[in-house]
């Protein structure tokens, strides 16, 4: 047991992502300004902020699909697998396609895929259905399955406004937590759900173009700060477990 704890400590001290002075400008508009933070392996970082704060842009920049100034250093710099769950995919309905075919667009091992889909509660019938006919919860589970297949070390998860439940008690977050533990997955998560933040995150980054706060959850997330981030008074309560 002691060994296990030691091992965990060793692993968690390894920095997987270092961001220094990150700025992103899109079509002449400054979206992110001088952002700096770092995440260790196996941590769950929640990115908080109002609409238009640059949360999605931050995730996409980290994914490497947007131009930026500053430094983004992944460790290892080459060969790190990143899974990305986008907020929505409006164009997917242009193509008649079922879930199975959606996964065939990605090179993944059949066994790995079956395991992940089972964990996410995606039944065969869902995979046979036309994607345009899935409920938003089912569709989002497909997207998470997509991101988790191929065994990524990092997951970038852009949450839509509505959360998703797998069944009454099991939420998508408890599942992600499970993945994080089992596979030492590092997760960067955008969410508006403060309960999720309290229950699952190890660190929080409050964003509104600039980083307004960064650090361990309980040390920094105060009502004062939330008001600063979201601009209005926000009521929240902390779950005690």
């Amino acid at each position: 047991m002691e060994n296990l704890i030691l091992k965990e400590k060793n692993q968690s001290s390894e920095v997987i992502l270092k961001v220094r002075g990150l700025s992103v400008e899109l079509e002449g508009e400054k979206i992110l300004e001088n952002l700096s933070f770092e995440i260790k392996k196996g941590e769950i970082l929640t990115i908080l902020g109002p609409n238009g704060a640059g949360k999605t842009v931050l995730l996409r920049t980290l994914l490497g699909v947007l131009p930026y100034k500053g430094e983004i250093i992944w460790s290892p710099p080459q060969g790190l697998k990143i899974g990305y769950v986008p907020q929505r995919l409006p164009f997917i309905k242009d193509v008649p396609m079922n879930g199975k075919e959606f996964f065939s667009l990605k090179n993944v091992l059949e066994n790995d895929l079956v395991k992940i889909l089972n964990l996410l509660g995606i039944e065969k019938e869902i995979l046979e259905k036309k994607i345009g006919e899935l409920s938003s919860g089912q569709f989002q589970r497909l997207l998470i399955g997509w991101a988790l297949s191929g065994n990524p070390q990092v997951l970038l998860f852009d949450e839509p406004t509505s959360g998703i439940d797998i069944s009454g008690e099991k939420t998508i977050y408890s599942l992600l937590k499970q993945f994080q533990k089992e596979r030492d997955l590092t997760i960067l998560l955008v969410t508006h759900d403060l309960n999720v933040v309290y229950k699952y995150s190890s660190k929080v980054l409050c964003l509104n173009k600039r980083a307004l706060c960064f650090g361990k959850l309980r040390e920094i997330l105060t009502p004062d700060l939330l008001e600063k981030v979201y601009g209005t008074e926000i009521k929240f309560y902390e779950h005690k477990h």
């Binding site: 996409r60 994914l63 490497g64 699909v65 990143i82 990305y84 986008p86 995919l89 997509w146």
Partner: peptide, 8 residues
């Protein structure tokens, strides 16, 4: 469907 997913 998504240029981001494709690039990734």
């Amino acid at each position: 469907i998504s240029e981001d997913l494709a690039r990734n």
